[in-house]
């Protein structure tokens, strides 16, 4: 009886304020889509970190005849200098930070270069002599790169010691900025959504003030009076959050997995639909929570006894 009555009230409230309800749906839809996008961006950053930090190496570049930077004096690193660096890498002090390392000769570097830039005209300008020989070091813990840089960059014949994570950090900074922008926009839109829900509920309560007055007079409990209004807000926000969830899943399915993964091919991992599905309950919960709290604040004015 009571449940039926409450649901009837909710239905009539939603019908009466249909234009406001639609605007609540749209605003929550847009704002929660931004929230979802921000969460997905963070997930993407996490995945890329996991993927790339495992592959990121510390490169110890050795001098060529053309270098005058670092410890180089336009003479190529001699074999004894190379051996000294290798000995350092194998020494007790450094070995425990190092998972494995390998030596890359100019010829190998040249082959890799040719493979990587096969489509580019640069490839034809490069000869093996211009490319540095190098040690490629995989660390046990990628954050220990500074130790290696400090202990090796002073050695003779070493041009430069480079932590490749430096390149990645720039990419992550860009992605982070994008996700913070999304969060900022989402926050603004959520404020608008909350205010709009509050306004909608006030309108709804105003149009039913006779019923509310009589309910209070005959002793309907506050919970009974406010439940239909809160449900009204929650239902509108729920529809919005479902739309946002659908949008997020569609973006991942068609843009990320469809377009981006064919464009970028296998250069990195991308968030998948399974990640998007994790975002869905978060969006629904955020939408419902915001709607319920703003509606209950809005209706409380009508409940003062």
């Amino acid at each position: 009886m009571r449940l039926g009555l409450i649901l009837g009230e909710v239905g009539s409230g939603l019908r009466r304020n249909i234009s406001m309800v639609i605007s609540v749906v749209l605003v929550t839809f847009i704002s929660l889509t931004f929230v979802g996008a921000a969460i997905l961006l963070q997930m993407q950053i996490g995945q890329m970190k996991g993927y790339w930090y495992d592959r990121a190496q510390v490169a110890v570049y050795l001098c060529t005849e053309l270098d005058s930077t670092g410890n180089c004096t336009q003479t190529a690193a001699t074999q004894s200098q190379i051996d000294l660096v290798a000995a350092q890498l194998e020494s007790d002090a450094l070995a425990r930070y190092i998972e494995r390392f390998e030596f890359e000769t100019s010829e190998q570097a040249f082959e890799n270069f040719q493979a990587q830039f096969s489509d580019s005209p640069i490839a034809s300008f490069v000869t093996p002599e211009t490319l540095n020989e190098s040690f490629r070091v995989n660390l046990v813990n990628p954050t220990d790169a500074d130790i290696l840089i400090e202990s090796l960059s002073g050695l003779a014949g070493v041009q430069n010691v480079e932590d490749q994570r430096g390149y990645l950090d720039q990419i992550f900074a860009v992605l982070n900025a994008a996700s913070y922008t999304a969060i900022g926009l989402a926050a603004l839109m959520l404020v608008a959504a909350v205010l709009l829900i509050a306004t909608t509920i006030r309108l709804s309560a105003f149009s039913r003030r006779r019923e509310l007055g009589i309910m209070r007079l005959v002793g309907a409990s506050n919970r009974f009076i406010q439940t239909p209004f809160i449900l009204e807000g929650v239902i509108a926000a729920f529809v919005g959050s479902l739309l946002a969830s659908a949008a997020i899943v569609a973006i991942v399915q068609f843009f990320v997995q469809g377009y981006l993964s064919t464009t970028l091919q296998n250069t990195t991992t991308l968030v998948g639909v399974s990640d998007a599905v994790i975002v869905v309950p978060i969006l629904v919960a955020v939408g419902a929570l915001l709607a319920a709290s703003s509606a209950s604040v809005a209706i409380s004015r009508y409940l003062k006894v």
Partner: peptide, 13 residues
């Protein structure tokens, strides 16, 4: 104020 509704059920207006 939580009990007011229940109190009012004893009154007719």
């Amino acid at each position: 104020s939580r009990k007011v509704p229940y109190y009012r059920r004893n009154l007719g207006v």
